[in-house]
Design a protein around this nucleic acid. Sequence first.
DNA 1: CCTGTGCATTGACAAATGTCAAGACTTTCC
DNA 2: GGAAAGTCTTGACATTTGTCAATGCACAGG
Lengths: 189, 189
Amino acid sequence: MIEILRQHIIDRLGNDVENIDDVLERCKQVKVKRNDIILREGETCSAVYFVAKGCLQVFVYNHDSAEITRDIVTENNWCSELVSFSSQQPATENIRAIEPSVLFSIDRVSFQALVESVPQFDKVYKQILEFSYVNSVYRINSFLSMNALERIKWLMEYRPNLMTRLSSKLIASYLGISPETFSRLKSKL
Amino acid sequence: MIEILRQHIIDRLGNDVENIDDVLERCKQVKVKRNDIILREGETCSAVYFVAKGCLQVFVYNHDSAEITRDIVTENNWCSELVSFSSQQPATENIRAIEPSVLFSIDRVSFQALVESVPQFDKVYKQILEFSYVNSVYRINSFLSMNALERIKWLMEYRPNLMTRLSSKLIASYLGISPETFSRLKSKL
DNA sequence: CCTGTGCATTGACAAATGTCAAGACTTTCC
DNA sequence: GGAAAGTCTTGACATTTGTCAATGCACAGG
């Protein structure tokens, strides 16, 4: 399973990868069941996670205790609560496995050590940051410029696997609409 | 004016700053008038900008040619179209000065050189990326969990200066609501 | 100083989306 | 296997937000 992570790093850096084993040694494999909570708001986020298999939901609760899904992270992507991870303040978001998943976690101490000592890893980290940022920019633009139906179409185009893989309720919460509206609009496609 | 940028970098790195002059030498001062376009969609973004004075709007046009404001960048912050800047593909966003402004621009070649050769600069870059990402996470959560009135209150709390500094039309476009709705909700505060 | 252009506000109405409730259907778990 | 819980869909209705139009106002530019 760790080979998936190795390949991920190689994919991002090409073939000139030294010290990759230093990175992999620091990664702890974690298996989680469906609905397991990986991070609870209020706790301090002490690791970043690579999703080798499965799917994570990053979410908060609104004032009615309904879940607001800020992000869905699938295989071959990294997941964390960066605000809490880098500042070591209590997290404001929750992370949950929505499928049985296999993760590789790197704790904060190892992470800092790798950033300092393995330039390759630092590069990967920057790529991940840029990727996350770019994704969130798209997401912001989708909220600013699209109505609910357009956002559904957008999801179908850019993250089609989510449409088949997730429950309607979850998709609706990711799109920022009610399950009822989602159900109604789907039938208008 | 360049002292503002010097101070910005020192603020982010503490006192152990070497090579800072290598960075500052690469920065070209640019003065722009109100409404000057700094980047037009379709062009390739060739620089990052530090806003020493003034205010920039990052925006796109929706299908009705109305402006959608993805971000507002004020003094002491960095602005760019990162997607285009790092991939050298045509930009999908526009950048405009909404006040007379003073910028320091670092072109792509210089930027790459600094990232490679000045570890300090690389650190600043990562901090900026993290900051931008965190901000966009908050913004996404605001769209997911708040209605128009709540977003207005949120803006008043977290970016109060924008409320006094920008036109109502611009604020509305930043919040993702129509100017009419903004006008009506303001009176309900 | 005048004029035109764009901005802010308000009203009337339309469209989009949310809420609540009910029923059919699945899935989970003992 | 069967009860219990959760999901999906649909209807009726409420609320939020958008659109269009009109007016008053401020401000830039000749």
